[in-house]
């Protein structure tokens, strides 16, 4: 049995424009010590998926409409606010994109670092402080003993993200949710932070849910990848299969649009069109209008495609249009909306 089993999660937002189906029937597992990636564009629902698990969706307008998330015999989606507080920040923790906004600028780092230990472990101040210094040391903050009494603004961006990681791991959580943790960082710092996350994971055996829009980052850190589009997973596979034998047109299009792998002098590949509005019911294949395979005419229009297991552990939405090969001679257009 997996550490976390999410089944048929649905999170909708009830807005004036209608019901926004941000997460629409999503299922995945997280094994102990594994890194599971959720990849997709802005607005695809990857953050809402994780916020739902942490029960951080503002209600109203949001509402978890259905599904289960079994973690150690508990259904995270049904816990009372008091019960979920015991899990959140202790056994499941989170780091965010922008460390400056998630650290409190008025409090010293020390106050924020020892808070989880005081609350969840009932630890005394001096003991907690000792642990916190050791933790800062482990994430590579030099002179941790003195630096712990600094404020967030006294650290650089990369160092702040290290502090966040220390804070998230100090309770030795079973799952760490990392929401675009390196997107705001320079490439060199990004590399350091990714390396750090991996080393700490090896040391502590923490499972990680890694949210990102960057496929290259996925290839560096993830074991298993879920590709998300318009509130649903379109493809789920071990990281190797996602890159060596991607099946869904969206996964392939995402890979084609990575600037680093494209030839200089030619126009970069872009996915035409825009993601669909989630406030409207999507009758068929959500990617259909942007699909550019030779078989795109066969994209489902009357029913939503369902995930099927094509190879062991390799699931893909069974839409005949999106599974076809790309048209060979496509003329790239610049303005594509």
């Amino acid at each position: 049995m997996a550490l976390l089993e999410v089944r048929n999660l649905k999170t909708y937002f009830h807005t004036r424009e209608g019901i926004v189906r941000a997460v629409d029937d999503v299922s995945f597992d997280v094994e102990r010590g594994q890194t599971v990636g959720i990849v997709g564009e802005s607005g695809s629902g990857k953050s809402v998926t994780c916020y739902s698990l942490m029960r951080l969706i503002p209600e109203p307008p949001g509402k978890i409409e259905g599904g289960t998330a079994m973690f150690d015999g508990m259904d995270l989606l049904k816990l009372t606010p008091k019960e979920i507080q015991k899990v959140r920040g202790d056994r499941i923790t989170m780091i965010f994109q922008e460390p400056m906004t998630s650290l409190n600028p008025y409090l010293k780092i020390s106050t924020q670092l020892i808070e989880p230990l005081q609350i969840h472990r009932g630890m005394g101040k001096s003991e907690a402080l000792e642990k916190a210094i050791a933790e800062l040391d482990a994430v590579g903050i030099p002179d941790a003993k003195n630096r712990i009494h600094s404020y967030a603004h006294e650290f650089s961006g990369g160092m702040r993200q290290r502090v966040m990681i220390a804070m998230a791991l100090i309770t030795r959580p079973e799952i760490l949710i990392a929401d675009e943790p390196t997107t705001a960082l320079d490439v060199t710092i990004q590399k350091q932070v990714l390396d750090l996350i991996r080393t700490r994971q090896d040391d502590l055996g923490t499972a990680i849910i890694f949210i990102t829009h960057d496929l290259t980052v996925v290839s560096e850190v993830c074991d298993y990848v879920n590709v998300m589009y318009a509130g649903r997973f379109v493809e789920r596979a071990p990281v190797k299969a996602i890159f060596t034998e991607p099946k869904h047109a969206y996964t392939r299009a995402l890979q084609k649009s990575i600037p680093a792998i494209q030839e200089k002098g030619k126009d970069l590949y872009t996915i035409p069109g825009l993601p669909p509005l989630l406030s409207q019911e999507i009758p068929g294949c959500a990617f259909g209008p942007r699909c550019e395979t030779a078989t795109k005419d066969q994209c489902l229009t009357d029913k939503r495609p369902i995930l099927v297991e094509k190879n062991p552990q390799h699931w893909v939405q069974d839409c005949p249009g999106c599974l076809g090969s790309f048209q060979k001679s496509r003329r790239f257009k610049n303005s594509s909306f």
Binding site: E41, S257, T270, S335
Partner: peptide, 11 residues
């Protein structure tokens, strides 16, 4: 996003 990046770079 990566997919939007390409559009702006092309432009």
């Amino acid at each position: 996003d990566v997919s939007i990046q390409s559009q702006i770079l092309n432009l």
